[in-house]
């Protein structure tokens, strides 16, 4: 396959950045998209040029490192698929493909396709856990969890923290990410004691980090490679309302 790539190049955070054209003549349809970039990078290095920087690690769709907007879609055209699992058989010989980093105020570009997603860690720091120290746990079977609750919790906990939801959102909101963690913990009995405190502190941190508000476009759930359901945002709003207006948040 011959492919024309237009790739966002930006030296560092202050550089303005630009799209640069490249051609790869010898792509195979069994390659993953990242392997295509590998091949291009090998050529750039040998030609004395700076290779394209991009985040990647596990290359099996679970670490959440890879983060490319391909032809305007976070993670590209294939549904429920991260870029590392996107294979070139999804494209046609002769295609021109645009490759850009996540674009969001809260995710500044570090270099080329690499962005800074540390704001996600800050949101988790604000309460995305059950406060239990090592060694203090009761016997596992002392707390049964209804299967349906465990399954819904898992479906939300499936989030890989890649940030595609933010990149897809016209407002740059991380509500899907936020709702996923709140639903994961909120569905489990272990998550109940801190449930209404957690939702407020996490939402406050989300807002302070520069993420936008949710206007229910649903673009996030469509882009999500793990198909986190949109109803986690309803859960987020419901819990937030109960915590604040409903007075369920208890201080101290």
């Amino acid at each position: 396959m011959k492919l024309n790539l237009r790739v966002w190049r930006q030296n560092d955070q202050v550089d303005k950045g630009r799209m640069v054209d490249y051609t790869v003549d010898d792509a195979s349809e069994d390659m993953s998209f990242l392997e295509l970039i590998d091949v291009l990078n090998e050529k750039l290095i040998l030609a004395g040029q700076d290779p394209i920087a991009f985040d990647h690690d596990c290359r099996e769709g679970i670490c959440g490192s890879c983060s490319m907007v391909i032809d305007g879609q976070p993670h590209g055209p294939q549904k429920a698929t991260t870029v590392c699992q996107l294979h070139m058989r999804q494209f046609n010989d002769g295609d021109t493909i645009n490759v850009e980093p996540w674009r969001a105020g809260a995710f500044p570009v570090v270099k080329d396709l690499v962005v800074d997603r540390s704001a996600f860690d800050k949101i988790i720091q604000a309460g995305g856990y059950v406060s239990v120290n090592t060694g203090s746990a009761p016997e596992a079977h002392s707390t049964p969890v209804p299967k349906a609750a465990a399954d819904r919790s898992f479906a939300a906990a499936n989030c890989i923290g890649c940030g595609a939801c933010v990149a897809a959102c016209p407002n740059g909101s991380a509500s899907l990410f936020l709702g996923a963690k709140l639903t994961h913990l909120g569905e489990m009995p272990q998550g109940q004691p801190e449930r209404y405190e957690r939702v407020v502190t996490m939402v406050d941190t989300h807002d302070a980090a520069g993420f936008g508000g949710c206007t229910n476009t649903g673009a996030c759930a469509t882009a999500c490679p793990k198909e986190i359901p949109l109803d986690v945002i309803s859960q987020l709003n419901k819990d937030y309302l109960a915590a604040t207006v409903g007075g369920k948040r208890r201080k101290g």
Partner: peptide, 22 residues
């Protein structure tokens, strides 16, 4: 055995049976 207890207490969503047990 302690590991499973610890992880359950953290809210790890392990697979469960219909009775609610692991």
């Amino acid at each position: 055995r302690q590991i499973i207890d610890q992880c359950v207490a953290q809210g790890v969503p392990f697979a469960r049976e219909y009775g609610g047990l692991l």
